[in-house]
C-alpha cells in the first residue's frame, strides 16, 4: 500500500473516507493471549460486543457468533465484562503462541 506524501495530504488532517480505520488491522497487537468464545452458556447479553474497543465481536442474526482475530487486540475486556460464571464460560482468555 502506498502512503500519501505530505504535499498530497488534505490540509488539516481531514479524512473524507468514513470508516477508514478498518484498513488498519489491529490483530497483530496481541501479545500471547486471545479470547475464546464458547456459545454453550452464552446468554447473548451483548456486553462483550458493547465493550470491545475494536469492534471485534462478530454477530449473526442478533446473536454473538465469534471473534474476528484480524482486529482483536487481546485486551481481555470482553472476557472481563462477560457476566456468565457457569462453566464453560462463554469467553475466556487463552494462551496463544505467536
Amino acid at each position: 500500500m502506498s502512503h500519501e506524501a505530505w504535499n498530497e495530504l488534505k490540509p488539516g488532517t481531514i479524512i473524507e473516507d468514513p470508516g477508514s480505520a478498518s484498513n488498519h488491522f489491529t490483530g497483530h497487537y496481541r501479545k500471547g493471549l486471545k479470547p475464546e468464545f464458547n456459545e454453550l452458556n452464552c446468554i447473548h447479553c451483548f456486553f462483550c460486543w458493547v465493550f470491545c474497543p475494536e469492534n471485534a465481536i462478530m454477530t449473526e442474526a442478533e446473536k454473538i457468533s465469534g471473534i474476528n482475530y484480524d482486529y482483536c487486540k487481546g485486551c481481555g475486556i470482553c472476557a472481563n465484562e462477560c457476566p456468565v460464571e457457569n462453566k464453560p464460560k462463554p469467553l475466556i482468555m487463552i494462551k496463544e503462541v505467536i
Binding site: H3, E4, L9, T13, E16, P18
Partner: peptide, 23 residues
Amino acid sequence: KPLTIGSFSSPNYYFEHKLNQFQ
C-alpha cells in the same frame, strides 16, 4: 459529506501532517 478531522495519526503519517501544516 461526512468526514473525520483530528483523528489518530501513526508515526507513518504524523510527520507528513506536520509538514502540511508548516506549508
